[in-house]
Amino acid sequence: MWTIAKLSFKEILYKRIFLIALIMTLAYLLLYGIATHYAGASSLKTLYEIDPAQKAAMSVQFKIVGSQLLSMGLYFANFIIGLLTILATVGSIAGNIESHQIDPILTRPIRRLDFLLGRFLGYGILLMVYTLFFFLSIILVNHLFGGPLQADLSTINIFKASLVFACVPFIVISPALFFSSIVSTINSGIILIVLYGMSFIGGFVEQLGNILHNIALINIGIVSSLLFPADNLFRYMNTLLAGSSATPFDPASLFYGSGSPSALMLVYCAVYVLLILLLGVRTFARRDI
Rank of each mutant, 00 (worst) to 15 (best):
H100V: 13
G122N: 09
C167S: 11
L116M: 06
A151C: 11
L106N: 04
Q150E: 12
S184W: 00
F134K: 02
Y130W: 08
H143P: 05
M128A: 11
N187T: 08
S154I: 08
F134Y: 11
L127G: 06
L144Q: 12
F115D: 01
F170R: 00
I171L: 09
I193E: 00
H143M: 10
F115C: 03
G189S: 05
L163M: 13
I105G: 02
V164D: 00
M128K: 13
D114M: 04
F170W: 09
R112I: 13
G124N: 04
R112P: 04
Y130L: 12
L177M: 07
V194D: 06
P148I: 05
V164T: 12
L153V: 13
L149F: 04
M128N: 15
L116A: 03
S137P: 06
I191H: 03
S180M: 00
S162Q: 11
G122C: 09
A161M: 02
A176Y: 04
L113T: 14
I193V: 10
F115Q: 03
I139Y: 06
P175E: 00
S181D: 01
Y123L: 05
G124W: 03
L126S: 05
G122E: 14
A151N: 08
L121T: 04
L126I: 07
P169R: 00
S184G: 10
I125F: 15
F159S: 09
L116I: 14
F134M: 10
Q101K: 08
F179L: 10
V164F: 05
I190W: 01
G118I: 06
A161N: 02
I139A: 06
N157Q: 12
N142C: 15
L153P: 13
T155P: 15
L136C: 13
I193Q: 02
